[in-house]
Design a protein around this nucleic acid. Structure first.
Lengths: 249, 249
DNA sequence: TAAATTTGTCTATTGATATAGACAACTATA
DNA sequence: TATAGTTGTCTATATCAATAGACAAATTTA
Protein backbone atom coordinates (compact mmCIF):
# COMPACT_ATOMS: atom_id res chain seq x y z
CA UNK A 1 0.00 0.00 0.00
CA UNK A 2 2.86 2.33 0.66
CA UNK A 3 5.00 3.31 -2.23
CA UNK A 4 7.32 5.52 -0.22
CA UNK A 5 9.18 4.75 2.93
CA UNK A 6 7.16 5.85 5.92
CA UNK A 7 8.91 6.27 9.25
CA UNK A 8 7.39 8.99 11.33
CA UNK A 9 8.74 8.05 14.69
CA UNK A 10 11.41 10.18 16.30
CA UNK A 11 14.33 9.07 18.45
CA UNK A 12 14.54 10.43 21.97
CA UNK A 13 17.72 10.91 24.03
CA UNK A 14 19.73 10.31 20.86
CA UNK A 15 22.06 13.27 21.09
CA UNK A 16 20.02 14.94 18.36
CA UNK A 17 17.22 17.10 19.71
CA UNK A 18 13.66 16.40 18.65
CA UNK A 19 13.26 19.79 17.00
CA UNK A 20 16.37 19.20 14.88
CA UNK A 21 15.12 15.75 13.83
CA UNK A 22 11.74 17.18 12.88
CA UNK A 23 13.39 20.01 10.95
CA UNK A 24 15.36 17.37 9.05
CA UNK A 25 12.19 15.46 8.24
CA UNK A 26 10.47 18.54 6.93
CA UNK A 27 13.49 19.31 4.75
CA UNK A 28 13.40 15.76 3.39
CA UNK A 29 9.70 16.09 2.74
CA UNK A 30 10.22 19.24 0.76
CA UNK A 31 13.15 17.81 -1.17
CA UNK A 32 11.10 14.70 -1.96
CA UNK A 33 8.51 16.95 -3.52
CA UNK A 34 5.75 16.37 -0.98
CA UNK A 35 5.00 20.08 -1.06
CA UNK A 36 4.83 22.25 -4.09
CA UNK A 37 6.42 25.67 -3.90
CA UNK A 38 4.36 28.03 -1.78
CA UNK A 39 2.25 25.16 -0.47
CA UNK A 40 1.11 25.31 3.14
CA UNK A 41 2.65 23.00 5.69
CA UNK A 42 0.17 21.06 7.84
CA UNK A 43 -0.81 23.12 10.89
CA UNK A 44 1.42 22.89 13.94
CA UNK A 45 -1.01 20.78 15.95
CA UNK A 46 -1.25 18.25 13.14
CA UNK A 47 2.53 18.02 12.83
CA UNK A 48 2.85 17.65 16.58
CA UNK A 49 0.45 14.74 16.51
CA UNK A 50 2.12 13.10 13.52
CA UNK A 51 5.54 13.18 15.16
CA UNK A 52 4.22 12.46 18.64
CA UNK A 53 5.65 15.60 20.23
CA UNK A 54 4.41 18.79 21.79
CA UNK A 55 3.31 21.66 19.58
CA UNK A 56 6.11 23.83 21.00
CA UNK A 57 8.69 21.33 19.81
CA UNK A 58 7.31 21.55 16.29
CA UNK A 59 7.47 25.31 16.60
CA UNK A 60 11.18 25.09 17.43
CA UNK A 61 11.75 23.05 14.28
CA UNK A 62 9.76 25.46 12.15
CA UNK A 63 11.49 28.50 13.56
CA UNK A 64 14.87 26.99 12.69
CA UNK A 65 13.71 26.47 9.11
CA UNK A 66 12.31 30.00 8.97
CA UNK A 67 15.79 31.18 10.04
CA UNK A 68 17.30 29.14 7.23
CA UNK A 69 14.95 30.71 4.73
CA UNK A 70 13.18 27.47 3.89
CA UNK A 71 9.80 28.35 5.36
CA UNK A 72 7.74 31.49 5.90
CA UNK A 73 5.22 31.59 8.77
CA UNK A 74 2.22 33.93 8.69
CA UNK A 75 0.12 34.40 11.76
CA UNK A 76 -3.45 33.31 11.21
CA UNK A 77 -2.76 31.86 7.75
CA UNK A 78 -0.25 29.11 7.99
CA UNK A 79 3.36 28.18 7.28
CA UNK A 80 4.52 28.09 3.70
CA UNK A 81 7.30 26.44 1.74
CA UNK A 82 9.71 28.86 0.13
CA UNK A 83 12.60 26.80 -1.06
CA UNK A 84 12.99 25.30 -4.44
CA UNK A 85 14.05 21.72 -4.90
CA UNK A 86 17.59 20.62 -4.31
CA UNK A 87 20.09 21.37 -7.01
CA UNK A 88 21.20 18.25 -8.84
CA UNK A 89 24.95 18.33 -9.29
CA UNK A 90 26.16 15.94 -11.97
CA UNK A 91 29.29 13.91 -11.39
CA UNK A 92 30.74 12.05 -14.32
CA UNK A 93 33.72 11.79 -16.62
CA UNK A 94 33.45 15.50 -17.43
CA UNK A 95 32.46 17.05 -14.14
CA UNK A 96 32.38 20.84 -14.57
CA UNK A 97 30.86 23.15 -12.01
CA UNK A 98 29.19 25.75 -14.15
CA UNK A 99 28.16 23.53 -17.05
CA UNK A 100 26.73 21.00 -14.61
CA UNK A 101 24.28 23.40 -13.04
CA UNK A 102 23.30 25.08 -16.27
CA UNK A 103 19.55 25.16 -16.66
CA UNK A 104 18.94 24.81 -12.94
CA UNK A 105 20.15 28.24 -11.93
CA UNK A 106 20.31 31.57 -13.69
CA UNK A 107 23.72 32.41 -12.28
CA UNK A 108 26.66 30.44 -10.88
CA UNK A 109 30.35 30.98 -10.30
CA UNK A 110 33.32 29.97 -8.19
CA UNK A 111 34.91 32.29 -5.65
CA UNK A 112 38.55 31.88 -4.69
CA UNK A 113 38.70 32.25 -0.93
CA UNK A 114 42.39 31.58 -0.30
CA UNK A 115 45.45 29.98 -1.78
CA UNK A 116 48.81 28.78 -0.51
CA UNK A 117 51.77 26.63 -1.37
CA UNK A 118 52.42 23.80 1.04
CA UNK A 119 54.23 20.48 1.15
CA UNK A 120 52.02 17.69 -0.15
CA UNK A 121 50.46 15.53 2.54
CA UNK A 122 50.39 11.82 1.97
CA UNK A 123 46.98 11.66 0.39
CA UNK A 124 47.62 14.70 -1.81
CA UNK A 125 50.95 13.27 -2.94
CA UNK A 126 49.28 9.96 -3.76
CA UNK A 127 46.47 11.63 -5.64
CA UNK A 128 48.75 13.82 -7.72
CA UNK A 129 51.54 11.31 -8.15
CA UNK A 130 54.05 13.61 -6.45
CA UNK A 131 56.72 12.88 -3.90
CA UNK A 132 55.51 13.36 -0.36
CA UNK A 133 56.43 16.87 0.76
CA UNK A 134 56.74 18.23 -2.78
CA UNK A 135 55.26 21.68 -3.32
CA UNK A 136 51.48 21.68 -3.76
CA UNK A 137 49.37 24.71 -4.59
CA UNK A 138 46.18 24.67 -2.61
CA UNK A 139 43.10 26.62 -3.68
CA UNK A 140 40.18 27.10 -1.33
CA UNK A 141 37.02 27.81 -3.29
CA UNK A 142 33.31 28.19 -2.85
CA UNK A 143 30.74 27.47 -5.54
CA UNK A 144 27.68 29.71 -5.60
CA UNK A 145 24.45 29.44 -7.53
CA UNK A 146 21.94 32.27 -7.53
CA UNK A 147 23.81 33.78 -4.63
CA UNK A 148 23.56 30.68 -2.44
CA UNK A 149 26.66 28.67 -1.57
CA UNK A 150 26.36 25.13 -2.96
CA UNK A 151 29.87 23.77 -2.56
CA UNK A 152 33.10 24.34 -0.69
CA UNK A 153 36.29 22.78 -1.97
CA UNK A 154 40.01 22.50 -1.41
CA UNK A 155 41.98 21.66 -4.55
CA UNK A 156 45.64 20.82 -4.89
CA UNK A 157 47.85 21.14 -7.96
CA UNK A 158 51.53 20.50 -8.65
CA UNK A 159 52.96 23.86 -7.59
CA UNK A 160 55.77 23.77 -10.15
CA UNK A 161 53.71 22.90 -13.18
CA UNK A 162 50.82 25.20 -12.28
CA UNK A 163 52.64 28.16 -10.79
CA UNK A 164 50.25 31.11 -10.88
CA UNK A 165 47.06 29.12 -11.16
CA UNK A 166 45.78 30.95 -8.09
CA UNK A 167 45.92 34.25 -9.96
CA UNK A 168 44.25 32.68 -12.98
CA UNK A 169 41.53 31.29 -10.77
CA UNK A 170 40.91 34.63 -9.08
CA UNK A 171 40.66 36.26 -12.49
CA UNK A 172 38.53 33.75 -14.38
CA UNK A 173 36.44 32.21 -11.60
CA UNK A 174 36.72 28.88 -13.38
CA UNK A 175 38.94 25.85 -12.93
CA UNK A 176 38.48 24.88 -16.55
CA UNK A 177 39.52 28.31 -17.81
CA UNK A 178 42.49 28.43 -15.43
CA UNK A 179 43.77 25.06 -16.53
CA UNK A 180 43.42 26.12 -20.15
CA UNK A 181 46.08 28.75 -19.51
CA UNK A 182 48.48 25.95 -18.74
CA UNK A 183 47.72 24.11 -21.93
CA UNK A 184 45.09 21.78 -20.47
CA UNK A 185 42.28 21.79 -23.01
CA UNK A 186 40.48 18.82 -21.57
CA UNK A 187 40.51 16.81 -18.39
CA UNK A 188 38.62 13.84 -17.03
CA UNK A 189 37.39 12.73 -13.64
CA UNK A 190 39.46 9.70 -12.77
CA UNK A 191 38.06 8.78 -9.38
CA UNK A 192 35.50 10.01 -6.85
CA UNK A 193 35.06 8.73 -3.32
CA UNK A 194 31.95 9.79 -1.53
CA UNK A 195 30.99 10.05 2.13
CA UNK A 196 28.79 12.11 4.45
CA UNK A 197 29.14 13.65 7.88
CA UNK A 198 27.86 16.44 10.07
CA UNK A 199 29.01 19.88 9.02
CA UNK A 200 31.90 21.17 11.10
CA UNK A 201 32.39 24.77 12.18
CA UNK A 202 34.19 25.70 8.97
CA UNK A 203 31.42 24.20 6.81
CA UNK A 204 28.78 26.06 8.78
CA UNK A 205 30.44 29.38 8.17
CA UNK A 206 31.47 28.79 4.55
CA UNK A 207 28.21 27.24 3.37
CA UNK A 208 25.87 29.35 5.46
CA UNK A 209 24.41 26.33 7.25
CA UNK A 210 22.71 25.85 10.57
CA UNK A 211 24.50 23.67 13.14
CA UNK A 212 23.58 20.01 12.79
CA UNK A 213 23.42 20.14 9.00
CA UNK A 214 24.82 17.29 6.92
CA UNK A 215 27.43 17.65 4.19
CA UNK A 216 28.22 15.31 1.32
CA UNK A 217 31.97 14.95 0.88
CA UNK A 218 33.69 13.98 -2.36
CA UNK A 219 37.39 13.30 -2.75
CA UNK A 220 38.31 13.30 -6.40
CA UNK A 221 41.22 13.19 -8.86
CA UNK A 222 41.13 14.84 -12.28
CA UNK A 223 43.51 13.66 -14.99
CA UNK A 224 44.50 14.65 -18.51
CA UNK A 225 43.05 12.48 -21.30
CA UNK A 226 46.30 10.52 -21.32
CA UNK A 227 45.92 9.76 -17.63
CA UNK A 228 48.30 12.16 -15.88
CA UNK A 229 46.82 13.49 -12.62
CA UNK A 230 46.51 17.27 -12.47
CA UNK A 231 44.08 18.05 -9.67
CA UNK A 232 43.26 16.48 -6.32
CA UNK A 233 40.25 17.89 -4.50
CA UNK A 234 38.00 17.51 -1.49
CA UNK A 235 34.55 19.10 -1.86
CA UNK A 236 31.72 19.53 0.58
CA UNK A 237 28.10 19.95 -0.53
CA UNK A 238 25.22 20.88 1.81
CA UNK A 239 22.94 17.81 1.67
CA UNK A 240 19.86 19.94 2.24
CA UNK A 241 20.49 21.98 -0.91
CA UNK A 242 22.33 19.63 -3.25
CA UNK A 243 22.03 16.07 -4.46
CA UNK A 244 24.67 14.39 -6.58
CA UNK A 245 23.63 12.85 -9.86
CA UNK A 246 26.08 10.23 -11.02
CA UNK A 247 26.09 10.36 -14.79
CA UNK A 248 27.91 8.73 -17.68
CA UNK A 249 28.19 5.55 -15.69
CA UNK B 1 51.17 24.43 6.74
CA UNK B 2 48.13 22.29 7.18
CA UNK B 3 47.52 19.60 4.65
CA UNK B 4 44.29 18.41 6.18
CA UNK B 5 41.29 20.38 7.19
CA UNK B 6 41.45 21.28 10.85
CA UNK B 7 38.25 22.37 12.57
CA UNK B 8 38.19 21.43 16.20
CA UNK B 9 35.53 23.78 17.43
CA UNK B 10 32.15 22.47 18.40
CA UNK B 11 28.77 24.10 17.95
CA UNK B 12 26.68 24.78 21.01
CA UNK B 13 22.86 24.98 21.20
CA UNK B 14 22.70 23.52 17.71
CA UNK B 15 20.12 20.82 18.30
CA UNK B 16 22.95 18.31 18.18
CA UNK B 17 24.44 17.59 21.59
CA UNK B 18 28.13 18.16 22.17
CA UNK B 19 28.75 14.51 22.99
CA UNK B 20 27.17 13.44 19.70
CA UNK B 21 29.28 15.96 17.76
CA UNK B 22 32.44 14.76 19.48
CA UNK B 23 31.53 11.14 18.81
CA UNK B 24 31.13 12.06 15.15
CA UNK B 25 34.55 13.71 15.11
CA UNK B 26 36.19 10.68 16.61
CA UNK B 27 34.52 8.46 14.03
CA UNK B 28 35.79 10.74 11.27
CA UNK B 29 39.25 10.66 12.77
CA UNK B 30 39.26 6.89 12.78
CA UNK B 31 37.88 6.67 9.25
CA UNK B 32 40.50 9.15 8.06
CA UNK B 33 43.14 6.82 9.40
CA UNK B 34 44.40 9.03 12.22
CA UNK B 35 44.48 6.00 14.48
CA UNK B 36 45.74 2.61 13.55
CA UNK B 37 43.79 -0.41 14.67
CA UNK B 38 44.18 -0.99 18.42
CA UNK B 39 45.81 2.40 18.87
CA UNK B 40 45.01 4.33 22.04
CA UNK B 41 42.82 7.40 21.87
CA UNK B 42 44.23 10.49 23.59
CA UNK B 43 43.27 10.51 27.29
CA UNK B 44 39.93 11.99 28.24
CA UNK B 45 41.40 15.17 29.72
CA UNK B 46 43.36 15.84 26.54
CA UNK B 47 40.28 15.34 24.36
CA UNK B 48 38.24 17.57 26.65
CA UNK B 49 40.81 20.31 26.26
CA UNK B 50 41.06 19.88 22.49
CA UNK B 51 37.30 20.20 22.02
CA UNK B 52 36.87 22.81 24.73
CA UNK B 53 34.40 20.81 26.79
CA UNK B 54 34.22 19.12 30.14
CA UNK B 55 35.76 15.72 30.64
CA UNK B 56 32.33 14.25 31.38
CA UNK B 57 31.09 15.36 27.99
CA UNK B 58 33.94 13.52 26.33
CA UNK B 59 33.07 10.49 28.43
CA UNK B 60 29.52 10.58 27.08
CA UNK B 61 30.84 10.57 23.53
CA UNK B 62 33.22 7.72 24.26
CA UNK B 63 30.58 5.65 26.00
CA UNK B 64 28.32 5.99 22.95
CA UNK B 65 31.13 4.71 20.73
CA UNK B 66 31.84 1.87 23.15
CA UNK B 67 28.16 0.95 22.83
CA UNK B 68 28.52 0.97 19.05
CA UNK B 69 31.50 -1.33 19.26
CA UNK B 70 33.92 1.21 17.82
CA UNK B 71 36.01 1.72 20.97
CA UNK B 72 37.04 -0.33 23.99
CA UNK B 73 37.81 1.45 27.27
CA UNK B 74 40.07 -0.12 29.90
CA UNK B 75 40.33 1.40 33.34
CA UNK B 76 43.84 2.55 34.11
CA UNK B 77 45.13 1.83 30.58
CA UNK B 78 43.26 3.92 28.09
CA UNK B 79 40.64 3.79 25.34
CA UNK B 80 41.37 1.81 22.21
CA UNK B 81 40.20 1.77 18.62
CA UNK B 82 38.51 -1.45 17.58
CA UNK B 83 36.92 -0.76 14.24
CA UNK B 84 38.43 -1.31 10.87
CA UNK B 85 38.26 1.26 8.11
CA UNK B 86 35.10 1.97 6.21
CA UNK B 87 34.12 -0.41 3.47
CA UNK B 88 34.44 1.11 0.03
CA UNK B 89 31.39 0.27 -2.03
CA UNK B 90 31.96 0.74 -5.77
CA UNK B 91 29.24 2.31 -7.89
CA UNK B 92 29.62 2.18 -11.63
CA UNK B 93 28.16 0.79 -14.82
CA UNK B 94 28.24 -2.71 -13.39
CA UNK B 95 27.34 -2.20 -9.76
CA UNK B 96 27.06 -5.60 -8.07
CA UNK B 97 26.82 -6.05 -4.34
CA UNK B 98 28.94 -9.10 -3.74
CA UNK B 99 31.54 -8.54 -6.45
CA UNK B 100 31.97 -4.95 -5.32
CA UNK B 101 33.01 -5.83 -1.81
CA UNK B 102 35.17 -8.76 -2.80
CA UNK B 103 38.59 -8.51 -1.24
CA UNK B 104 37.42 -6.22 1.55
CA UNK B 105 35.39 -8.79 3.44
CA UNK B 106 35.58 -12.52 3.83
CA UNK B 107 31.85 -12.99 3.64
CA UNK B 108 28.92 -11.03 2.22
CA UNK B 109 25.36 -11.71 1.15
CA UNK B 110 21.93 -10.18 0.72
CA UNK B 111 19.01 -11.06 2.97
CA UNK B 112 15.44 -10.74 1.70
CA UNK B 113 13.47 -9.13 4.52
CA UNK B 114 10.07 -8.74 2.89
CA UNK B 115 8.34 -8.59 -0.46
CA UNK B 116 5.01 -7.40 -1.74
CA UNK B 117 3.14 -6.44 -4.88
CA UNK B 118 1.83 -2.91 -4.92
CA UNK B 119 0.69 -0.29 -7.40
CA UNK B 120 3.62 1.69 -8.72
CA UNK B 121 4.00 5.12 -7.16
CA UNK B 122 4.87 7.98 -9.43
CA UNK B 123 8.61 7.79 -9.04
CA UNK B 124 8.65 3.99 -9.34
CA UNK B 125 6.50 4.15 -12.46
CA UNK B 126 8.81 6.76 -13.97
CA UNK B 127 11.90 4.78 -13.12
CA UNK B 128 10.59 1.53 -14.56
CA UNK B 129 8.72 3.04 -17.48
CA UNK B 130 5.41 1.61 -16.27
CA UNK B 131 1.99 3.17 -16.08
CA UNK B 132 1.30 4.75 -12.72
CA UNK B 133 -0.53 2.23 -10.56
CA UNK B 134 0.68 -0.78 -12.55
CA UNK B 135 1.74 -3.77 -10.45
CA UNK B 136 5.22 -3.46 -8.98
CA UNK B 137 7.01 -6.15 -7.02
CA UNK B 138 8.85 -4.63 -4.09
CA UNK B 139 11.76 -6.39 -2.41
CA UNK B 140 13.11 -5.17 0.89
CA UNK B 141 16.69 -6.34 1.37
CA UNK B 142 19.66 -5.93 3.66
CA UNK B 143 23.27 -6.33 2.57
CA UNK B 144 25.62 -7.82 5.13
CA UNK B 145 29.40 -8.13 5.15
CA UNK B 146 31.16 -10.16 7.80
CA UNK B 147 27.94 -10.22 9.75
CA UNK B 148 27.57 -6.42 9.85
CA UNK B 149 24.75 -4.71 7.96
CA UNK B 150 26.18 -2.41 5.29
CA UNK B 151 23.14 -1.55 3.21
CA UNK B 152 19.37 -1.52 3.29
CA UNK B 153 17.43 -1.32 0.06
CA UNK B 154 13.98 -1.31 -1.44
CA UNK B 155 13.86 -2.51 -5.05
CA UNK B 156 10.97 -2.48 -7.46
CA UNK B 157 10.44 -4.65 -10.55
CA UNK B 158 7.66 -4.98 -13.11
CA UNK B 159 5.43 -7.48 -11.31
CA UNK B 160 4.22 -9.11 -14.51
CA UNK B 161 7.54 -9.64 -16.17
CA UNK B 162 9.31 -10.72 -12.97
CA UNK B 163 6.59 -12.72 -11.24
CA UNK B 164 8.29 -14.92 -8.67
CA UNK B 165 11.49 -12.92 -8.35
CA UNK B 166 10.88 -12.71 -4.61
CA UNK B 167 11.18 -16.48 -4.32
CA UNK B 168 14.29 -16.47 -6.51
CA UNK B 169 15.81 -13.76 -4.34
CA UNK B 170 15.06 -15.65 -1.13
CA UNK B 171 16.65 -18.74 -2.60
CA UNK B 172 19.75 -17.29 -4.22
CA UNK B 173 20.48 -14.27 -2.04
CA UNK B 174 21.57 -12.40 -5.15
CA UNK B 175 19.87 -9.92 -7.45
CA UNK B 176 22.11 -10.90 -10.33
CA UNK B 177 21.31 -14.60 -9.95
CA UNK B 178 17.59 -13.89 -9.59
CA UNK B 179 17.49 -11.78 -12.74
CA UNK B 180 19.36 -14.49 -14.61
CA UNK B 181 16.35 -16.77 -14.07
CA UNK B 182 14.31 -14.34 -16.09
CA UNK B 183 16.73 -14.31 -18.96
CA UNK B 184 18.65 -11.22 -17.86
CA UNK B 185 22.30 -12.14 -18.35
CA UNK B 186 23.62 -8.64 -17.99
CA UNK B 187 22.36 -5.32 -16.77
CA UNK B 188 23.78 -1.84 -16.41
CA UNK B 189 23.41 1.01 -13.97
CA UNK B 190 21.64 3.73 -15.90
CA UNK B 191 21.40 6.45 -13.26
CA UNK B 192 22.25 7.06 -9.62
CA UNK B 193 21.15 10.02 -7.55
CA UNK B 194 22.85 10.50 -4.26
CA UNK B 195 21.92 12.28 -1.06
CA UNK B 196 22.43 12.06 2.70
CA UNK B 197 20.27 12.48 5.78
CA UNK B 198 19.93 11.45 9.38
CA UNK B 199 18.94 7.85 9.86
CA UNK B 200 15.25 7.41 10.64
CA UNK B 201 13.80 4.87 13.05
CA UNK B 202 13.64 2.16 10.38
CA UNK B 203 17.27 2.69 9.39
CA UNK B 204 18.38 2.54 13.00
CA UNK B 205 16.73 -0.83 13.48
CA UNK B 206 17.65 -2.35 10.13
CA UNK B 207 21.26 -1.19 10.02
CA UNK B 208 22.00 -1.55 13.71
CA UNK B 209 22.84 2.13 14.13
CA UNK B 210 22.77 4.51 17.05
CA UNK B 211 20.33 7.42 16.89
CA UNK B 212 21.83 10.47 15.19
CA UNK B 213 23.75 8.40 12.65
CA UNK B 214 23.95 9.53 9.02
CA UNK B 215 22.93 7.44 6.03
CA UNK B 216 23.95 7.85 2.41
CA UNK B 217 20.96 7.38 0.11
CA UNK B 218 21.14 6.29 -3.52
CA UNK B 219 18.21 6.15 -5.90
CA UNK B 220 19.12 4.12 -8.96
CA UNK B 221 17.78 2.56 -12.13
CA UNK B 222 19.23 -0.58 -13.70
CA UNK B 223 18.60 -1.33 -17.36
CA UNK B 224 19.27 -4.10 -19.83
CA UNK B 225 22.16 -3.52 -22.25
CA UNK B 226 19.62 -2.32 -24.84
CA UNK B 227 18.30 0.27 -22.40
CA UNK B 228 15.06 -1.19 -21.06
CA UNK B 229 14.63 -0.44 -17.32
CA UNK B 230 14.29 -3.51 -15.13
CA UNK B 231 14.97 -2.37 -11.56
CA UNK B 232 14.34 0.80 -9.58
CA UNK B 233 15.89 0.95 -6.13
CA UNK B 234 16.48 3.14 -3.11
CA UNK B 235 19.42 2.09 -0.93
CA UNK B 236 20.66 3.38 2.38
CA UNK B 237 24.26 2.98 3.54
CA UNK B 238 25.52 3.80 7.05
CA UNK B 239 28.01 6.63 6.46
CA UNK B 240 30.11 5.57 9.42
CA UNK B 241 30.76 2.14 7.93
CA UNK B 242 30.61 2.66 4.18
CA UNK B 243 31.96 5.09 1.63
CA UNK B 244 30.91 5.04 -2.01
CA UNK B 245 33.58 4.79 -4.65
CA UNK B 246 32.38 6.07 -7.99
CA UNK B 247 34.13 4.02 -10.64
CA UNK B 248 34.14 3.71 -14.40
CA UNK B 249 33.51 7.40 -14.74
C1' DT C 1 57.01 -0.09 46.32
C1' DA C 2 55.72 4.55 45.42
C1' DA C 3 54.23 7.85 42.10
C1' DA C 4 52.07 9.13 37.99
C1' DT C 5 48.60 8.25 34.66
C1' DT C 6 44.22 6.89 33.24
C1' DT C 7 39.39 5.35 33.47
C1' DG C 8 35.19 4.87 36.67
C1' DT C 9 31.81 6.74 39.98
C1' DC C 10 29.55 9.97 42.83
C1' DT C 11 27.32 14.57 44.14
C1' DA C 12 25.81 19.14 42.97
C1' DT C 13 24.56 22.95 39.91
C1' DT C 14 23.33 25.32 35.62
C1' DG C 15 21.37 25.81 31.09
C1' DA C 16 19.01 23.77 27.07
C1' DT C 17 15.29 20.78 25.64
C1' DA C 18 10.53 19.16 25.94
C1' DT C 19 5.88 19.05 27.87
C1' DA C 20 1.50 21.26 29.38
C1' DG C 21 -1.99 24.62 29.38
C1' DA C 22 -3.96 29.07 28.58
C1' DC C 23 -4.89 32.85 25.90
C1' DA C 24 -3.81 36.67 22.46
C1' DA C 25 -3.49 38.06 17.54
C1' DC C 26 -4.53 37.41 13.01
C1' DT C 27 -6.97 35.34 8.82
C1' DA C 28 -10.46 33.21 6.19
C1' DT C 29 -15.10 31.82 5.80
C1' DA C 30 -19.91 30.65 6.81
C1' DT D 1 -20.23 39.75 11.97
C1' DA D 2 -19.53 35.70 14.39
C1' DT D 3 -16.94 31.49 14.24
C1' DA D 4 -13.41 28.35 13.31
C1' DG D 5 -8.73 27.72 12.33
C1' DT D 6 -4.12 29.20 12.55
C1' DT D 7 0.28 31.27 14.40
C1' DG D 8 2.37 33.99 18.44
C1' DT D 9 3.37 34.60 23.39
C1' DC D 10 3.41 33.68 28.15
C1' DT D 11 4.01 30.83 32.57
C1' DA D 12 5.22 26.62 34.84
C1' DT D 13 7.39 22.14 35.34
C1' DA D 14 10.18 18.04 34.29
C1' DT D 15 14.00 15.87 31.99
C1' DC D 16 18.28 15.86 29.40
C1' DA D 17 22.83 17.89 28.49
C1' DA D 18 26.90 20.04 30.24
C1' DT D 19 29.92 21.83 33.83
C1' DA D 20 32.53 21.39 38.19
C1' DG D 21 34.97 19.05 41.69
C1' DA D 22 36.39 15.14 44.38
C1' DC D 23 37.90 10.67 44.92
C1' DA D 24 38.10 5.51 43.87
C1' DA D 25 40.08 1.76 41.03
C1' DA D 26 43.20 -0.07 37.86
C1' DT D 27 47.49 0.11 35.24
C1' DT D 28 52.03 1.60 34.00
C1' DT D 29 56.38 3.64 35.08
C1' DA D 30 60.13 5.34 37.92
Amino acid sequence: MIGQQVADSIERRSGVSLWRQIADRILQSIAAGDFIENAALPPEVALAERYGVNRHTVRSAISALVQEGVLRAEQGRGTFVLSRKRLSYPIGARTRFSAGLQGQTSERHIVLLASSIEPASQRVAEGLGLARGAGAMRLETRGEADGRPVSRAASWFDARRFAGIDAAMAETGSITASLARFGIDDYLRQSTVLSARHADAADLADLDLQPGAIVLVTVAVNVTPDGRPIQFSESRFPAERVELKLSAL
